[in-house]
Amino acid sequence: MDSGAWGLLIQGAWTTLWISGISIAIGVVMGLLIALLRVAKIPVLHQLLGVYISLARATPLVTLVLFIFLTAPTMGVNLNRNVAGIIALTLNTTAFNAEIWRSAFNNFSKEQREAALAIGMTPWVYFRRIMLPQITITSLPGLVNEMSFLIKGSPAIAVIGVVDLTRVTNRISAVTYDPLPPILAAAALYMLIISLLVWLQRVAERKASRLAV
């Protein structure tokens, strides 16, 4: 592989990273919001969100990406490929993150709330200063793990022609007629990205276990 091929590969990796990055950022926050709504158990909304989570967890990313990209024009919306990819990845990761956040809420001890209210904290201050910081730390390992899964699922956006780290290998081999080296190089880059996240997850786990003691 020459330097031109490596250049393309790095561009592909960058596409994978920024599209995944945006989806992860939105997905973590949306996941938290949905978890809060689910914990509040508002009738109808609770069930609707439950159906969304169940559906999003069962739908393959490839299918979701195609669905969004092909359906949008029939509803008069012309979606850019990248945006369609981001929407699909976000819808997917939000559902998983919502469940991670929710289980952290459900496992949170009730005694702390009584202690906080007893010393005169308002419920909002209690949530913001006491509950959220702890829940963030306990959720973090799960959230980082989900980030790895999202990166591993991100090649799904190749199906609508986004030239990500996987699809770029087709483009390189179209010129070099030898697909093996670019595929192996792409695999190595994925391993690099994921191993970074695995390392982050370990750090997060250490923090979370300190909180548990």
Binding site: K152, L180, L184, M191, I194
Partner: peptide
């Protein structure tokens, strides 16, 4: 560990597009 660090599609690519060169 190697498999757990790879996206599934890249493995499928390796077998379907990559191996014929070998």
């Amino acid at each position: 560990d190697g498999m757990r660090m790879l996206p599934f599609l890249i493995l499928a690519y390796l077998l379907y597009y990559g191996l014929p060169s070998a």
